[in-house]
C-alpha cells in the first residue's frame, strides 16, 4: 500500500533522534511491523528507509528515526505539514503473548519495543522495560515507558545513572517470574544476549539493509533454523536461539 501522508507533528527526542507523526486511520499494525519511508523524490538516495512503528494509538502513527547517514539526515529536515510517501505496513510483526515479559531495548531499538509496550499496556499484560543507551541524553520516551511498564530500568554505558548494558543488566536479574523476553537493538547486543542462553524464550527484532521491504528482492537474508529467511517478509521478529548471525 502506497500512501502520501502529511506530517502532523515533528518532535525531537534527542539531538539525533526525532519522531514524525501521521494521521492514519484503518490499519491494525502489529509490533515489529514497519513502513518503508521514501527519503525524497530524487533518485539519490535510491532506496526507502525501513522505520518501525513506535506508537499507534487513536489513528495516530508515530515513526521514530535516528540520524545514521545521508537518508535519515535528509528526512530529519522534513517539516510539519510536508508530505511523506510511505509504503506498508510491511513485515509479519508479532502478536504479544499474554505472559509476563521483559522488553529489552538497546539504543534506537526502543522504537518497536515502545509499540509493543503500548500493546502490553492496553491488554493489561504485566512487563518490565529494560532500556540501555550510550549516554543518558539518548534515553528517549522515558516518561511514556515509566507510565506503562510495571517496572522500568534505564542503563547507560557512559554518563550518569545506572551503568552498564541491557545484557549485563538482564544477567543480574531474577528471571523466575517472567515467561518471555523481547529484544531489539544493535546486532552486537543480540549476539551477546544469545550467548547468555537465558532460560526463557527470547524474541529478537532484527534489522538489516532492506531493498524492497516486502519480500520481492531477497536482499535481507537471515540464517534461521538452517535456511535463509527474509527479515522483511518472514520477520522482522525471530526466535533468538535459532538465528545464526553471519555478519
Amino acid at each position: 500500500m502506497i500512501r502520501s501522508l502529511s506530517i502532523i507533528k515533528k518532535t525531537w527526542f534527542s539531538k539525533n533522534t526525532f519522531g514524525l507523526e501521521f494521521s492514519l486511520p484503518g490499519i491494525k499494525p502489529r509490533p515489529g511491523q514497519f513502513f518503508q519511508v521514501r527519503v525524497n523524490d530524487s533518485m539519490d538516495p535510491f532506496l526507502n528507509r525501513p522505520i518501525s512503528i513506535a506508537s499507534y494509538s487513536g489513528n495516530r502513527l508515530l515513526l521514530i528515526i535516528k540520524i545514521i547517514g545521508k537518508g535519515t539526515n535528509i528526512l530529519s529536515k522534513r517539516r510539519e505539514r510536508e508530505q511523506v510517501t510511505l509504503f506498508g505496513p510491511y513485515g509479519k510483526g508479532i502478536v504479544p503473548k499474554r505472559q509476563k515479559s521483559i522488553l529489552l531495548a538497546g539504543g534506537i531499538g526502543v522504537a518497536p519495543l515502545h509499540f509493543l509496550a503500548q500493546m502490553h499496556y492496553k491488554r493489561k499484560i504485566p512487563f518490565t522495560f529494560l532500556y540501555g543507551a550510550k549516554t543518558y541524553d539518548e534515553i528517549i520516551l522515558k516518561a511514556s515507558i515509566k507510565h506503562m511498564a510495571n517496572r522500568s530500568i534505564f542503563v547507560t554505558e557512559y554518563g550518569s545513572g545506572r551503568r552498564g548494558t541491557v545484557v549485563s543488566a538482564v544477567k543480574g536479574m531474577d528471571l523466575s517470574d517472567y515467561a518471555i523476553v523481547y529484544a531489539c537493538g544493535p546486532q552486537a547486543m543480540l549476539i551477546a544476549l544469545q550467548q547468555l542462553h537465558l532460560p526463557l524464550p527470547v524474541y529478537a527484532f532484527c534489522e538489516d539493509f532492506l531493498g524492497c521491504g516486502c519480500g520481492l528482492c531477497l536482499g535481507c537474508a537471515i540464517m534461521y533454523n538452517g535456511t535463509y529467511k527474509r527479515i522483511c517478509e518472514d520477520g522482522p521478529v525471530f526466535e533468538l536461539e535459532r538465528i545464526h548471525f553471519e555478519n
Binding site: 535510491f46 531477497l218 537474508a221
Partner: peptide, 9 residues
C-alpha cells in the same frame, strides 16, 4: 543464496 549483507545502497 549468499550470506548477508546482500544489498548495499
Amino acid at each position: 543464496g549468499n550470506p548477508p549483507p546482500r544489498i548495499y545502497e
